[in-house]
Simulated assay, not measured.
Amino acid sequence: MNAISTGNYLKRDLRSMFAVRNNCISEETAFCKQDNLHQSLNTLNEEFESFGISSVTINNDLQTLESLKDLSIQVTNAAWKMIHKHRYLMRLHDQLIDLNHKTVNDNVNLKNYVKRLKEDIQKKEHMICKTEEKERRLNVKCEDASRNLKQERDEIRKLKKQIQFKETQHEHEIRRITQSSQKLQEQLRKSAGSFTPKDKLLQKIHEKELISYKQTICRLEENNRHMLEEINNLKEALELHQTGIALHIEASGAWTNADI
């Protein structure tokens, strides 16, 4: 744009500009006349000096041709310098306008960019809040799962102790039943060996003792069966607890292997 502005200024016709100005200004308002030539030159020198241009030397004798030529040359050179000064200032003005437009556009783009950044920050803050809430819920679930796992492990330890106690009790009971059975069989054998058909009273007593022994053996066998069923039930409960813990751990995703 600077090159275009410079070309436009170079193409200006100063004479046409002055002609237009002269048409707009009447003779009564003309700046310089014959009777105020010195005053006009002094005013013009002040303007030249304000632009940093050397002033025109004014001779007292302006009637001779040489003095008028010299004055014309000085005025022409000063006017030429002022024209270049004006062109330079106009170019600078255009550059400032372009710079101002660029600054305005940059400010608009910067505001839009800041707005987008604020929106991105708000979105990220919202995502962070959601993530923190998810993390909090997961922590609560993990704490609940840990607490439940501890309870299940405690329950399994209790069941194991009960099973061990029942197995020990069952072993003692089996030994006791075995010993009692052996004693009863020995008594039956002795009773059968000492039995005499002649004595019916002894036969009835023997039969009653035999029935009592058989009933005792049946009760012992029934107790043994109940104890076996109870041990099996405890083992099944233990397996169910272990399966429940494994499913709970797999569903929560907090652990991959549970050391029970």
Rank of each mutant, 00 (worst) to 15 (best):
K190Y: 11
T196A: 05
T178K: 02
T168A: 11
A192N: 08
K198I: 04
L184Q: 01
E173F: 15
L202A: 15
K204N: 12
K158M: 10
A192M: 05
H172I: 01
D199V: 09
E171Q: 11
T178N: 02
T178M: 02
L159D: 03
A192I: 06
E209S: 06
L201F: 13
K161T: 13
K190A: 09
G193A: 13
R176A: 05
K198R: 02
L184P: 01
R189C: 10
R175M: 03
Q162F: 15
S181T: 08
S191K: 09
E186Y: 12
L202D: 08
H172S: 08
T178I: 01
I177N: 05
F165V: 04
H170M: 05
S181N: 04
T168K: 07
K198Y: 10
K158F: 13
H206N: 09
I163C: 06
L202K: 10
K183N: 11
Q179Y: 09
H172E: 04
S194H: 12
R176I: 01
F195Q: 00
S191W: 07
Q203I: 01
I177V: 03
K200Q: 11
T178E: 06
I174F: 12
S194F: 10
E173R: 04
K190N: 13
R189M: 03
Q185Y: 14
E186P: 02
R175D: 03
E173T: 06
S180V: 03
S191C: 07
F165Y: 13
R189I: 03
I163F: 15
K183W: 10
R176T: 07
S180I: 02
E209C: 05
A192S: 14
K158H: 12
E209W: 13
I205A: 02
A192V: 10
T178R: 06
Q179N: 03
K200V: 14
E209A: 12
Q179R: 12
K160S: 13
L201D: 11
S194W: 03
S180M: 03
I174E: 06
K190D: 02
R176V: 01
E207C: 09
G193H: 14
L201G: 15
